[in-house]
Amino acid sequence: MDTSKNTIDSKKIIYSFCVIAAGILWGTMSIFVRSLSFLGFSSRQIMLMRSLLASGILAAVIALKNPALFKIHLRDIWIFIGSGILSMAFFSVCYFSTIIECGASVAVVLLYTSPVFVLILSAIFFKEKITFLKAAALVITFAGCVFVAGIFGSGTSVSPKGFFVGLLSGLGYGLYSIFGRVALKKYEPLTVTFYSLLFASVAMIPLSSPVELAGAMSVRSFLFFLGTAVFCTLLPFLLYTFGLSGLEAGRAAIFATVEPLVGTLIGIFLWKESAGFFKLLGIAMIFAAIILASLPERKSGN
């Protein structure tokens, strides 16, 4: 019995579970965002507070656990500029702009073009193979997202500007897997997550009317912001970053597409949104794609 192979397989399962758990937590975002939006906060202000509070909490954890994790080399700053500003902050701004321009359903589908970018960039920079299983899972995932978003048969029109900015949101979202993979070669997941959130916070400050934000803060809104920071930001990014340390970036990106599935289920059961045939079909397709992506590739010559 090959125990080393069993150990590797069990680790892969743990890494995969962490990425899927991250997607599930990201999918609960509407619970907090809808409440904060009702209280008068903009999407950019929510993004600023979630990253600011999450980085603050993580800084306290690192300080208590192992302050040495704060240490990074100046020559590696570009990695965290990439994961924090070019990914977290950039994709958020593009995503929110697409929601305004085209609506939420179109925005979420364009956002989840990210696995396409991840697979292509991973093949270029990490020499990851675009296998049949990955390609098939990718196609099924994207089709599932289209059905979940309710675009099919709705006659929705997309402006060229909205489509382009939406694709940029997918690129920005996918870049976290790329920069994160590079950072994890040198740093622990806690370090990578902390500096990514910190740089994202710095980038969002001039875009979020911080004075107005501070003036509108209350105990109730702060608790909602705290929930967003912990459950929709800190925990999922830590889980995703840890999972990314043991998975190919392309496969991790496919696993994370459980997010729109969870968001849709919350919309159906919590917000009483409609659940038609195509939406349920899309949910089933995303589940199937995740299972397909988790299957081991057949090795040639055996």
Rank of each mutant, 00 (worst) to 15 (best):
Asp76Ile: 07
Thr193Phe: 07
Ile72Thr: 13
Lys11Arg: 14
Leu238Cys: 06
Leu261Cys: 12
Thr257Leu: 06
Arg44Cys: 08
Ile79Tyr: 10
Gly144Ala: 08
Gly301His: 07
Phe147Pro: 01
Tyr173Gly: 01
Gly162Pro: 13
Phe125Arg: 00
Ala107Cys: 01
Cys232His: 07
Ala289Asn: 05
Ile100Tyr: 10
Gly172Phe: 12
Phe194Asn: 02
Gly40Met: 02
Pro206Lys: 07
Gly263Asp: 06
Lys134Leu: 12
Leu270Trp: 13
Tyr15Thr: 09
Thr257Asp: 12
Ser300Ala: 15
Ala288Gly: 00
Pro67Asp: 08
Ser10Leu: 13
Thr98Trp: 13
Ile140Met: 11
Thr98Met: 10
Val61Tyr: 10
Phe125Cys: 05
Leu244Asn: 11
Thr257Trp: 04
Tyr112His: 08
Arg298Trp: 05
Lys299Trp: 00
Ile151Asn: 02
Lys161Ile: 15
Ser4Phe: 06
Ala229Ser: 12
Thr7His: 04
Leu52Gly: 14
Val106Thr: 08
Leu234His: 09
Cys102Arg: 06
Gly282Cys: 05
Met1Tyr: 01
Lys127Arg: 15
Ile24Arg: 03
Phe269Arg: 00
Phe32Val: 08
Leu239Gln: 04
Met88Val: 15
Asp2Ala: 09
Gly246Cys: 01
Lys299Arg: 14
Tyr173Ser: 07
Ser294Cys: 09
Phe17Cys: 11
Phe32Cys: 03
Ala60Ser: 13
Ile24Ser: 02
Leu64His: 04
Ser4Cys: 00
Ala137Ser: 15
Ser30Leu: 06
Cys232Leu: 08
Ala256Glu: 12
Ile124Met: 04
Leu207Trp: 05
Gly246Asp: 11
Phe199Glu: 09
Phe96Leu: 05
Arg220Tyr: 08
Ile31Phe: 05
Gly155Thr: 09
Lys65Thr: 13
Ser122Asp: 03
Phe96Ile: 12
